[in-house]
């Protein structure tokens, strides 16, 4: 699949390099924290570990504060109100799946990543992780075909249904599978609103206002306001599979440009990420 190697062929501007750096930092954090998770650790503790790790490495602002979900909360079982996304005192147990989700701002660049893992062996979780690969390929292919975001959303959902899963990104605010991210001006003081950095929110709201005038939205949702071709920019894409009490996702940045060349018109910012490496290793093993 071209997606695997595409990023190297793309011209990486200093701006993209900045985004890639923060995305790598965030994934490094996810892997470091995941490595420290033990039986009995709570979601709150896992979220704090991420926050501390990133702060120590220079992160001062956030698109949103780190989240951690354990057990059936990875599939958002019984989520009714957005407050339920916030970390709880749920403790990790052997065999339990977990998801770490964080969106740090580093040197003015934002990343939003999701990392799904599991404490010990869980063949079902392995299956979910493996099945996410098809979604990464599908999304890239259809974005390059300039299909409407709403249609792509429905195709992803259809693929999930075929695989036997339910679409759990529908539980996110506005049911989004992705949202735009952008540079953020670094201020000395950036308060947060319900865990979201106000600077980053400001960018999203201003995008929403501009987009509303021009007929596009920075939120990639199943609704009519997403019935438009992909808007150039950076999208944090987060397909989220759920299967009874188990959920898995990845989240990474998709670069969309206005290039006429399909290869250049959209590509994953970085192909050297834990989940992509995992798929490659599985293929080699097979």
């Amino acid at each position: 699949m071209t997606g695997m190697t595409s990023a190297v062929q793309h011209e990486i501007t200093p701006e993209l390099r900045g985004f890639r750096e923060v995305q790598r930092l965030a994934y490094a954090c996810a892997e470091a924290v995941a490595g420290q998770l033990r039986s009995g650790v709570t979601e709150r503790e896992a979220a704090r570990m991420q926050r501390v790790w990133l702060r120590e490495r220079g992160v001062r602002d956030w698109f949103h504060l780190p989240f951690a979900w354990f057990g059936d909360r990875t599939a958002f079982a019984g989520f009714k109100v957005p407050l339920q996304f916030f970390p709880t005192d749920r403790r990790l147990e052997p065999g339990m799946p977990f998801i770490l989700d964080m969106a740090p701002v580093y040197k003015g660049f934002t990343a939003d990543v999701g990392y799904a893992g599991c404490l010990g062996l869980n063949p079902l979780h392995d299956r979910l992780l493996a099945d996410l690969e098809a979604h990464r390929e599908l999304i890239l292919r259809e974005v390059r075909e300039r299909r409407s975001l709403r249609e792509i959303y429905e195709d992803v959902e259809r693929l999930m249904t075929t695989q036997g899963y339910t679409n759990r990104h529908r539980a996110y605010p506005f049911g989004v599978i992705a949202h735009k991210i952008d540079r953020v001006t670094e201020r000395r003081w950036s308060p947060r609103l319900f865990g979201f950095g106000t600077q980053a929110l400001k960018g999203l709201v201003s995008d929403a206002l501009h987009g509303h005038r021009d007929g596009w939205s920075p939120l990639w949702s199943p609704y009519r306001f997403s019935d438009h071709p992909p808007q150039p920019g950076l999208w944090a894409v987060e397909p989220h599979l759920g299967f009874r009490g188990t959920g898995a996702k990845f989240e990474e940045i998709l670069v969309v440009t206005d290039s006429k060349d399909p290869e250049q018109s959209a590509f994953w910012l970085d192909d050297d990420l834990p989940h992509v490496r995992r798929w490659a290793e599985e293929k080699v093993a097979a």
Binding site: P123, L124, R127, T162, Q163, G164, F243
Partner: peptide, 13 residues
């Protein structure tokens, strides 16, 4: 294919 997939997932849970 769908039936086989259902069976496969059923074994996993």
């Amino acid at each position: 294919e769908g039936a086989a997939r259902t069976a496969e997932m059923a074994r996993l849970i």
